[in-house]
Computed example of a mutant assay.
Amino acid sequence: MTEQHDRAPSPPDEAGRVFASDRLPLAIAYADLLATEGVVRGLIGPREAPRLWDRHLLNCAVLGDVVPQEASVCDIGSGAGLPGLVLAIARPDLRVTLVEPLLRRTTFLEEVVTALSLPHVDVVRGRADALHGERTFDVVTSRAVAPLERLLQWSMPLVSPDGALVAMKGSNVADEIDAARPVLSEWRCAEPEVLTLGDGVLVHSTHALRVAWADPAQVGWPLAPAKRSSRRRRSR
């Protein structure tokens, strides 16, 4: 990475409640990389740098409260690593895969993983649907990627039978659920659960949406392998 002299703001007191003492220095180093290289490369807006901790790092770290121990996690549309890299920093027990199609972003992610020595993190350049039928995860997460009806189609094929989509969402999450009712039914999903995160830690609590399979014994998704194969043949 190129040398930069700007740094992120000092971590607030709440950071010590979210990150263990041995993980906080990694979070500080990541914040500095976001405030410098992240801004230079257009991954984080310049106005975001002063509020990295409250708006981004702490906001993402509390997602770890609803991720099971030693889970495999896939962060689709990872961008600058939010929330996937933050989860990996806060939770070394997790196995985290960051999926991002843009080269300049995956280059940054790979450099951060190397700089912070995060051996439990894998960076995959590509779209989420490139992994459909190839891999599944205990948790598939995302932040500000797409409305729920589209997010389900990208995420649910990656969710293991006993896993769940756990996406960070804004205050309009109830409206997204209503709009996605037909897709939830098509994908045989259980009733979505809205989770409130960060009470007592964040100035403003945040929301996550958890969607599991209605029946883990009968997981099925519309994009069947036979259909995928036939499409590949037609495209050649």
Rank of each mutant, 00 (worst) to 15 (best):
P68S: 08
Q69E: 15
Q69P: 07
E70H: 15
E70N: 15
V73P: 13
D75E: 06
I76C: 11
G77D: 04
S78K: 01
A80W: 07
A80K: 09
A80D: 04
L82T: 03
G84H: 05
L85A: 11
L85I: 11
V86M: 02
V86Y: 01
L87S: 03
L87C: 09
I89A: 11
I89Y: 09
I89R: 08
A90P: 11
R91D: 01
P92C: 04
D93H: 09
L98T: 05
V99M: 03
E100S: 13
P101N: 06
P101E: 00
L102P: 09
L103M: 08
T107N: 13
L109I: 11
V112S: 09
T114Y: 06
S117W: 05
S117V: 15
L118K: 05
L118Q: 06
H120M: 00
H120T: 00
V121T: 06
V121A: 13
V121N: 07
V124D: 03
R125H: 08
R125P: 12
G126T: 01
D129R: 15
L131C: 14
H132N: 11
H132L: 04
G133M: 05
E134C: 14
F137Q: 10
D138P: 14
V139L: 10
V139G: 12
V140C: 10
V140T: 12
T141D: 05
S142F: 07
S142L: 09
R143N: 11
A144S: 13
A144W: 03
V145H: 03
L148M: 11
